[in-house]
């Protein structure tokens, strides 16, 4: 697969029509694949394997506007939704990107392997659905589907919604009900839920990784960085304000969040931030009918769209929110 992609890219980059390729390179640690801009010479460094979980679409906001030439992007099926959403919001000019849809059968979360008790990992090889893991303490085995990234369990399907060409095969890896965790939270009393989120959000170190990786958080200047907004220093004032940072962020991306799961994937503290967004997505679907942000370019999301059939505000009462 990696070879096939590199060979195809060599062809495309040969005549200088494209400014480069956004893809993945080897990161600092063995299983880290980091986003990188390649030119024809550097293609040897390109990696594409089961560890390329990161979503590259957001990098195109900067890269595509920097050059007059077109740029090539490698996007997995789920990354396409973010790409489309950014095009809808005029943050990426679709005409300046050549999208190669790359096949994906789910990406591996090394943390999950470690959490399964496998320590001292030195190498991972794949054998169908089985992962053979070499460790300092001998070889171990684990089922591939047990260690997929959280986002792969909410897989939106194997179709690339924006690709100019597709390389490789994809498989859907969705594990059934993606709202189960949301419903578990909903079933709690308000006090329990508040405690749950206080517990989770108090771990936040305000590293901003969630915001910086989020394709919906593409603002040129975030309100939390803007000295004129009046909230610049607030979000770090105390742990309560830190909680508000995440809640406000969830509202800022409401209706536009494609549920790509990057926020939770990059969180060094392991906060399940995607559940905040997924709760809002569930609400939007319930109130306005099923909606998937980034399904296509030019969509109008339900929160900025108004029809006479829309729910009246009194829906809050009927759903028990007025009590």
């Amino acid at each position: 697969m990696q070879e096939m992609i590199i060979n195809r890219l060599r062809e495309l980059l040969a005549d200088g029509e494209y400014a480069g390729v956004i893809g993945w390179a080897q990161g600092e640690t063995p299983f880290d694949r980091t986003p990188n801009l390649f030119n024809a010479e550097g293609l040897d460094q390109l990696r594409y394997d089961s560890f390329c979980g990161s979503n590259l679409s957001k990098y195109l906001v900067q890269q595509a506007s920097k050059t007059e030439k077109k740029i090539i992007a490698l996007l997995k099926p789920c990354d396409c939704y973010s790409f489309n959403q950014l095009c809808t919001e005029h943050r990426i000019d679709r005409n300046k990107v050549y999208v190669i849809g790359v096949g994906c059968k789910g990406k591996i979360d090394v943390e999950k392997i470690r959490k399964a008790g496998i320590k001292g990992i030195t190498g991972i090889t794949e054998d169908g659905d089985l992962l053979k893991i070499e460790t300092m303490y001998g070889e171990k085995e684990i089922s591939r589907k047990d260690v997929l990234l959280e986002k792969c369990l909410a897989c939106k399907g194997k179709e690339h919604k924006c690709a100019d060409e597709v390389l490789g095969e994809s498989e859907e890896t969705c594990s059934g009900d993606k709202y189960a965790a949301v419903r578990r939270l909903e079933a709690m009393t308000a006090e329990e839920r508040f405690e749950f989120w206080r517990g989770e959000l108090s771990k936040c170190i305000r590293c901003n990784a969630c915001r910086n990786v989020c394709p919906a958080c593409s603002c040129i200047k975030c309100v939390f960085d803007n000295p004129n907004s009046g909230v610049q220093n607030k979000a770090a004032a105390d742990d309560f304000e830190e909680s508000l940072f995440h809640i406000i962020r969830a509202y800022h991306v409401a209706g536009r969040c494609t549920d790509c799961g990057e926020c939770s994937r990059v969180c060094p503290q392991g906060i399940p931030l995607h559940l905040l967004n997924r709760r809002i997505i569930q609400d939007v679907n319930e109130l306005y009918g099923d909606y998937q942000a980034g399904e296509s370019i030019g969509q109008r999301h339900p929160l900025t769209d108004f029809t006479l059939e829309d729910e009246e505000p009194s829906v809050i009462d009927t759903r028990g929110g007025g009590k």
């Binding site: 809808t88 005029h90 593409s218 040129i220």
Partner: peptide, 15 residues
């Protein structure tokens, strides 16, 4: 509009 920080995302136009 504060032009320095407007993203041009079109959401305001829609609402």
């Amino acid at each position: 509009t504060n032009e320095a920080i407007c993203n041009g995302c079109s959401q305001c136009e829609k609402v």
